[in-house]
């Protein structure tokens, strides 16, 4: 059995509540004064709109789209963070999500403790993480800072540690969201090499990036998302051409 992700007519709806912090007090007051309901009013947005897509083992999928196109939401649906509104999604393989910086990190703890915390948050036992520890620290080039609390790390150091953990634990499905943008060029090239290495062991990698050369360079397939809809699926070059074409810009 190999890794597989299958979207079948998947829709995901966000309700933007006009009142972000609803309270009983307001609900009762609204009800009493029969005013327009502040507490329950919302605007609906389809972050994913009837997406059908199959991602097979060996695919390195690049996701292209403007801000708010649903790119991160797609990753979060795969990670199981957001429940679907319609359709069905099948995910086979262990997912290692690198969706936002510092997910599952505690800034008060040392880098070393955070390696174990992050592993535990992905359901990996400390004994298994101990085997990876040396490699993670070495790849992140953080040997001298690893026992320092994470809150003193620079954002580059942060993302190096996060990337290093996510790629060392041998994920079957790796989700990357704009993660390499804060690393220096030395680390970016090192990370790119590591990703190629990961690809060769036939896992699924999904990469969200606004840096088109990165997608052209690393991915073997791509999609274009716009306002939650899947507009195009093809090779990175085709998608890039479509994304920059006048038809799309308008």
């Amino acid at each position: 059995m190999s890794a597989l992700i299958d979207f079948d007519q998947v829709s995901l709806r966000f309700r933007i509540y006009h009142n972000r912090t609803p309270s009983i007090k307001e609900t009762v007051l609204d009800w009493l004064s029969q005013r327009q309901k502040r507490a329950t009013g919302y605007t609906e947005i389809y972050a994913l709109n009837q997406i059908s897509l199959t991602i097979k083992s060996g695919d390195r999928l690049g996701i292209i789209g403007r801000n708010g196109a649903g790119k991160s939401t797609l990753l979060k649906a795969i990670a199981g963070i957001y429940p679907l509104h319609a359709g069905q999604l099948l995910v086979r393989g262990r997912v290692s999500p690198l969706i936002e910086m510092g997910a599952g990190f505690n800034p008060e703890l040392s880098g070393r403790r955070n390696i174990y915390l992050n592993g535990a948050m992905l359901g990996i036992a400390p004994e298994a993480m101990a085997e990876h520890e040396a490699e993670i620290v070495e790849f992140a080039e953080l040997a001298e800072f690893i026992d320092m609390p994470l809150k003193y790390y620079s954002s580059g150091m942060y993302s190096r540690l996060a990337f290093s953990i996510a790629t060392t634990i041998q994920p079957e499905i790796l989700l990357l969201d704009e993660l390499l943008s804060t690393g220096d060029s030395h680390f970016v090239s090192k990370a790119t090499a590591r990703m190629r290495q990961l690809f060769s062991s036939s896992h699924i990698v999904i990469l969200v990036s606004h840096t088109m050369p990165q997608i052209l360079d690393l991915c073997n397939t791509a999609i274009v998302l716009h306002k939650g809809k899947l507009l195009m699926q093809g090779t990175p070059a085709e998608c890039n051409a479509f994304y920059t074409s006048e038809a799309f810009v308008n």
């Binding site: 059995m1 829709s11 319609a86 359709g87 999604l89 099948l90 995910v91 086979r92 393989g93």
Partner: peptide, 9 residues
């Protein structure tokens, strides 16, 4: 390999 299925309901 773990398989997860997410549905709408």
């Amino acid at each position: 390999m773990i398989t997860r299925t997410y549905g709408a309901t």
